[in-house]
């Protein structure tokens, strides 16, 4: 029997809140850096989706593998990437986590289990199956969690990956962050089902739908699903319903979204929900929350400033790491 998943205690929830605020502040800062013309290329921000990254990260151990997408800053930070190394990567500096060779769409750090950040829609899913299969072949208890958007559920790689993971009963967890938009197109224009989760039935795979803006709900679901994967129960598809508060990428204001839709989702901002949960617990005060907000704001500002001062990569990096 899988033990019942428990909600986070107030102290842990406050840490999860800190992690979410860190992601939000980081992303807001990336936007400002972009507006100052300091970011070469594109950025895909995840404001509004922080509870998914943080709720899952809280349910994982350092040995577990995660893979994610070009909208992946939150997942990297949630599992412990230093904001300074992430900023430096986004700014293309030598102190970046990938020495400036990956950029915004490729924040990876194998030491943190961050095995791949994929810029091609759906591309990370089969790789995640291999990571889980490897753990299974080695009789390890690690799990492989892969994050992707609703748009990816229409590409072949999604279906092939679910099928392969299901056949192998591999410890792979497919987490769809359904933020309602695949780039600029609303999901109802591209997808005939309202719930991506139903697609698991085609592969005889369990699935679950979770409120992706409620970090407690994500954390509780994640614990159950991770435990199932760790104990040989095979893969699961989890759909986290959430919302991309900004546009698709740096220059997209998202004007194609109905204003009432934006308004209703902003009212369900994951930070608002978590603050309410903290206050309702009775053991966290507004002052405690404000202290977290302030300390994160300072740390992120310092990290961005340090990254802005970091040196450019050595020109030898152009041809380094093509082959061994």
């Amino acid at each position: 029997m899988t033990p019942a998943a428990l909600p986070a205690e107030p102290a842990q929830l406050l840490e999860m809140y800190r992690s979410m605020v860190q992601i939000r502040t980081f992303e807001d800062t990336v936007q400002k850096l972009y507006e100052k013309a300091l970011v070469h290329g594109s950025t895909h921000l995840c404001q509004g989706q922080e509870a998914v990254a943080v709720g899952w990260a809280a349910a994982l151990t350092p040995d577990d593998y995660t893979s994610y997408t070009y909208r992946g800053h939150g997942h990297a930070l949630a599992r412990g990437m230093s904001p300074e190394a992430a900023f430096a990567e986004i700014l293309g500096r030598s102190t970046g986590v990938n020495r400036g060779k990956g950029g915004s769409m490729h924040l990876t750090d194998a030491r943190l289990g961050l095995m791949g950040c994929f810029a091609i829609v759906g591309s990370g899913l089969p790789v995640a199956v291999g990571l889980g299969r490897g753990a299974q072949l080695r009789r390890e208890t690690r799990v492989s969690v892969t994050f992707f958007g609703d748009g990816a559920s229409n590409i072949g790689a999604f279906h092939e990956s679910l099928n392969l993971a299901a056949i192998w009963k591999a410890p792979v967890i497919f987490v769809c962050e359904n933020n309602l938009y695949g780039e600029y197109s609303r999901i109802n224009l591209t997808t005939t089902v309202d719930d991506i989760a139903v697609r698991a039935t085609a592969y005889a795979m369990p699935s679950q739908i979770v409120d992706g803006n409620d970090v407690q709900a994500v954390y509780q679901a994640a614990q159950t699903v991770v435990e199932r994967a760790r104990t040989g129960g095979g893969p699961t598809l989890v759909e986290c319903k959430t919302y991309r508060q900004r546009g698709h990428s740096r220059s997209d204001a998202g004007a194609y979204r109905p204003p009432e839709e934006v308004t209703s989702w902003l009212a369900r901002d994951p930070l608002i929900i978590t603050r309410r949960q903290l206050l309702d617990s009775g053991s966290v005060t507004s002052a405690d929350i404000a202290a977290v907000d302030d300390s994160v704001a300072t740390a992120i500002a310092n990290a961005a400033a340090a990254a802005e001062q970091a040196p450019w990569p050595d020109l030898a990096e152009i041809t380094r790491d093509v082959h061994a």
């Binding site: 194998a110 791949g116 291999g130 299969r133 490897g134």
Partner: peptide
């Protein structure tokens, strides 16, 4: 893709 994942570890 699974082979890539296996190779990474």
């Amino acid at each position: 893709g699974a082979a890539v994942g296996l190779a990474l570890i």
